[in-house]
Amino acid sequence: MSGLLDIKNLEVGFGAVTAIKGISLSLYRGTRMGIVGESGSGKSTLGLATLGLLPDFARCSGEVLFDGTALHWDNDMAMAGVRGSRIGFVHQDPMGAFSPVHTIGTHLTRAYLSAHPGASKADATKAAVDRLDEVEITDAKSRLRHYPHEYSGGMRQRVMIAAALIGNPELLIADEPTTALDVTTQAAVLRVMNDVIEARGMGLILITHDLGVVAEICSEVAVMYHGELIQHVPVDQIHEKAHPYTEALLKARPRPGMRGERLPTIAELLPEGWSDV
């Protein structure tokens, strides 16, 4: 059986660097997968490669099938039909992800009209208000006229989720959606994201370096290290069959009761010679 998203032997390089070294991965409908790894492990690149949004100088090989059909990254019009309306995307930077000279309403209605060509402006506005309600932005109708700089970071991140949902996609790729937010706001944004995904039965790829978030939201976890997929297991089994690197990652998390101690680092936790991969 083929999944909602099948990544087959994907390889991505930038110049002399190979960011992703032949990854194969399947995500089934309704599955929520967390992709974890250190900075530079290639997890964000994986998300962008799927959407065909890597910079022009990136070299991609391999294949990504969405719902059984191969994605043609170099065909911008074909990809535009997939982005937004089949795969939604949430960017990690709520400050930079909105054009400062356009209202929130413009961002949302443009996203809606790209996914529903031929729909009326009124439909788009209605959808925008509904999605803002869904992510718990109060007084949505009048807030459409506001500019991004009039929103707080947490609100902007919720608006970004609303914009990603407005095309009614089957899969959401969220690239570190809460990294730029403070802890309380993080929790609120994650809860909203979790709720809307559950309500819609959408698939989720959550790219993060926060294992706690993965444990809360995801059903599966994929661990990446230096462009390779090291482990891919259901989230409740991560402790049982942990790969040495995954184990090291888990041990590197701060825990209550560790006050005053130094956090273990990955290098000292890994078995001898392991990082030479």
Binding site: L48, G84, R110, A115, G167
Partner: peptide, 9 residues
């Protein structure tokens, strides 16, 4: 990037 991720050409 985000505008393109919304499906705009």
């Amino acid at each position: 990037l985000v505008a393109r991720a919304h499906g705009q050409s």
